[in-house]
């Protein structure tokens, strides 16, 4: 979606402005965390935990698609930490990494439908039905690649009406009623989004790993590893679990 990307652009521009870059007016330090969009809620909680434990440090979160974040980091954006929704994007920024990447969470796929499941959909093969308008992620983005893997594992040929750019776009199309069903990460299939989850057989076989690493190019390279530690800690684990993420 272009809203997060616009936000990202503005945030990056602000970060690049001299004066707002490394310290705020009262001498506070700033820790900049680039994290995949699916981590928005979890990292919001961890941000508060971190700031409570590190007085004087202001954590700034930049969320977006992992590949978009990776591209900005490669263009010189000052990230102290990068948490990616897949290993390919962590690999893309390997020249900027300060500590070796560690997988801190996993995600699997599920199906979402209109609340009440009026069409009685039960599995991926229903998505090939002619009377079902389904949306999936495009094969070029991580959730779409995982969807293709799952479909071929089960032996189903999907016939989507649209291949979206991000998992949040898929949720949006189903929640708005434009589409009857979609395939998303379990962490996105929240009832609060106005969708109902239909667990998929075989979904546990296709696991997306989320790696995290401290980055060298930020303004507080000394603080990065401590945030990574928090994410990997028991506290971090508990927050991730509550949001539906699996253990590495």
């Amino acid at each position: 979606m272009s809203r997060p990307s616009a936000l990202l652009g503005v945030t990056t521009a602000l970060l690049l402005l001299p004066g707002c870059s490394s310290a705020t007016a009262d001498g506070d330090r700033q820790l900049t965390v680039y994290a995949a969009a699916s981590l928005t809620h979890v990292f919001g909680e961890l941000e508060q935990t971190y700031e409570a434990a590190h007085p004087g440090v202001d954590v700034v979160m930049v969320h977006g698609g992992s590949s978009e974040l990776a591209a900005t980091i490669l263009e010189g954006a000052p990230a102290d930490v990068f948490a990616s929704a897949n290993e390919a994007q962590m690999d893309a920024v390997r020249t900027e990494i300060a500590t070796s990447p560690q997988v801190f969470a996993t995600n699997t796929l599920t199906m979402i439908v209109e609340p009440g499941n009026p069409l009685g959909l039960s599995g991926l093969d229903d998505l090939a039905r002619e009377d079902v308008a389904s949306v999936v992620c495009a094969p070029q983005v991580p959730c779409g690649a995982a969807t293709l893997d799952l479909a071929s594992l089960i032996g189903v040929e999907l016939a989507p009406s649209s291949q979206e750019n991000s998992v949040t776009d898929v949720v949006g199309k189903v929640a708005s009623g434009q589409a009857d069903a979609g395939v998303v990460y379990v962490t996105e299939a929240q009832p609060s989004s106005g969708v109902q989850e239909v667990p998929l057989a075989g979904a546990a076989e296709v696991v997306s790993a989320y790696p995290i690493a401290a980055m060298a190019g930020g303004h507080s390279p000394d603080l990065g590893p401590s945030f990574v530690e928090l994410v990997l800690s028991a506290d971090g684990r508990a927050v991730l679990e509550r949001a539906g993420f699996g253990a590495p």
Partner: peptide
């Protein structure tokens, strides 16, 4: 933006050049 939000993104049906650019940037 309106196309992406309203019409979706499917090759040959709704994926116009700007949408293709946005997707290609991923890979």
């Amino acid at each position: 933006g309106a196309t992406l939000t309203f019409a979706g993104s499917m090759p040959g049906v709704t994926r116009t050049l700007p949408l293709e650019i946005y997707l290609q940037r991923e890979t």
